[in-house]
Structure formats: structure tokens, C-alpha cells
Write a protein that binds this DNA or RNA. Structure first.
Lengths: 153, 153
DNA sequence: ATAACGATTGCAAGTTTATACAAAAATGAA
DNA sequence: TTCATTTTTGTATAAACTTGCAATCGTTAT
């Protein structure tokens, strides 16, 4: 529990779980978990992790992840086992083809794990329509989905 | 071009169009467009607009809108009454999220009552894709749907 | 082992952002 | 209008964040 990667992982976790409003707060939370660092390091860590200070609905500042690909790094992920055949874009939309009958299951995984990058999905039998949130590029969507599902190019 | 609302609107525009990396930069850009304000005011404006400093793909800081939907809180609340959780737009399309299993029922209501503003809907389990007719703005669609959902409950 | 090189970190200084407070402007009621 | 009340803004300052630099830590090659 002392190397950089562990610390980064812990920061992610803390930011997701706690309402962190400043780097000082985060620093205390980390200290509490056995990591001794300076605020300067946290500034750099947060930059690496693309965690930024945002505004929640109550108008208060709160640190949040901007890059959602972290989700796929979470220990176990069913979607990876499920596989998918292709992913293509048309205008703002993405269409994923899956093995016959698998669309529903994979769509459910996407809904659950793709986070705010995806507004929603609609699944047929072997086709999933994915509606990305505005502001997310094709590359970003592809990255998020491909992290989620192994077999994508 | 001198009141607060105009300024806020302009700030939004500038942030979307230019790569703004600090409030000082934004200040200059606004000055350039005829608004004389101090950094303190900008800090407050950005808070109101929920525009925050984020990280772009190149790892540089950039101000961005946090709230990607322009949905009024009213319609969001109305939607919630029925079991719909949110309504957001992506390009010409609208996506409504509902409680699990409710999408079909709500989509049917929309088809039946939304009139000419909506070409059609496609429902998954908890997601409805709504295709507006060309020429209808997001605000119009939002109003129509929120009225509709209000009447349903 | 040790030299060389890259990565990581703390320190301190610099930059940027948030806010307390008071003044000014807008709003409203009588 | 005039007074009271709320909203908006600037000033000044505090708080929060970023970064250059040098020291340290880790690797790898010799």
C-alpha cells in the first residue's frame, strides 16, 4: 500500500465515495488510509487521473472523475466475458453488434458501467443502439466501451 | 449587451467556442466582446453556470460546462413523478430514462399524445429514444414532454 | 556494487480561484 | 417619490491550486 499506483487507485475510490471539496480534504482522507503525501503531489495525481473540481446539484464544489474509463478497471466485469462483434458510428449514435441473443445482457452492462458518457441504450436481439452524451467524442466512447468489452477493436 | 443575463449567455458561448484555460483568459475574451468585469464576478458567474475547469484529452486545463443538458428542473421533476428519471438531448434526438420496465408504457403515451412534434419513439427497458420532427427546438420538445408527463400523473 | 537515467516527490514560490465585506444598483411597497 | 430590501458587483484578501527546481527513489546496464 505504498506505491504510486495504489495511491492513485485509492484516490479514485475516495473521490467516488466521499464528498471531497478540496485537495486538503483529500489529503486528510488519504492520511487516514495510510498515505502520506503533500498537496502538490495530489494536484499532480488528480491531473493524471483527470479528476476535477466540479459543482454538484446543491451548488457546492466537489471533486469528480472526468474520465470514466476507470469503471472498466474495477475488478470483475461480466461484459468482457460476453464479447461483442463490432461497433460503428452513425452521426451521434453508436451501434454495437453482438452474438445473437446477447444484446440485452451487454446493453445492461453498458447501462450499468459506462457512466455519464452514455445517455442510454436500446437493445434488440443482436444489435444495441447506444446514445452517447453530447460532448463525448467517438474516440472517447470507443475507449470506454472497448475497455468495457474486450473483443472490440 | 450590458445586463447580467447577456453576459452569462456570452460566457457560455465563449467557453464552448474558445479554449479557455483560466478566468483571466475569459476576462480578456469578454472585454474583447464589450463586457467589462472583474475576475471575482467571473468566478461567481462560472459557479452559477456550472462551468468548471476540466482536463481535455491533451492533458491541458480547459473550462467546460458540467451540466450538459439544458433541461429545466421543472420538467425533470415532472418526469420523475411518472417514473421517468431524466430527459436529455443528443444531436437531433432526445433520450428519456425511466424506471426499469416503464419505457414501453411511457413511450406509448408519448406516441399517442405528443402530436406532430414527435415523429416516433423507440423504447427499450428503461430508455426511450424520441425522434423529434425537424424544426422543433429542444425547449419546445422539453415543454411538450413535460406537459404530457404532467397530465399522465 | 555503482554509474547513469528516468520517474516521483517535496518544497517553496507563483498563479489562479473563491469569498467576506461594503458599496452600488436594482426592485418593490407604500 | 422615498424608504426598505434584495441582488449584483468590485475590492481586497484568503484559500486553493499549479509548477519549477532540486533532491530522492528505482531501474537497468555495465
Amino acid at each position: 500500500m505504498k506505491n504510486k499506483n495504489d495511491r492513485l487507485q485509492t484516490i479514485r475510490q475516495v473521490v467516488i465515495e466521499c464528498k471531497i471539496g478540496s485537495q486538503e480534504e483529500l489529503l486528510k482522507e488519504l492520511l487516514h488510509r495510510g498515505y502520506t503525501v503533500t498537496q502538490a503531489t495530489l494536484s499532480r495525481d488528480l491531473k493524471r487521473l483527470k479528476i476535477t473540481k466540479t459543482l454538484d446539484n446543491t451548488g457546492e464544489y466537489r471533486y469528480r472523475l472526468t474520465d470514466l474509463s476507470f469503471i472498466s478497471e474495477k475488478s470483475e466485469n461480466n461484459a468482457k466475458a460476453l464479447g461483442a462483434n463490432s461497433l460503428e458510428f452513425s452521426g451521434p449514435l453508436a451501434v454495437m453488434k453482438t452474438r445473437s441473443g446477447y444484446a440485452g445482457a451487454i446493453a445492461a452492462e453498458i447501462d450499468q458501467h459506462a457512466g455519464e458518457a452514455v445517455l442510454g441504450t436500446i437493445a434488440g436481439d443482436d444489435t444495441i443502439l447506444i446514445i452517447p452524451r453530447e460532448g463525448f467524442s467517438r474516440v472517447e466512447i470507443t475507449n470506454i466501451l472497448s475497455n468495457l468489452i474486450e473483443n472490440l477493436s
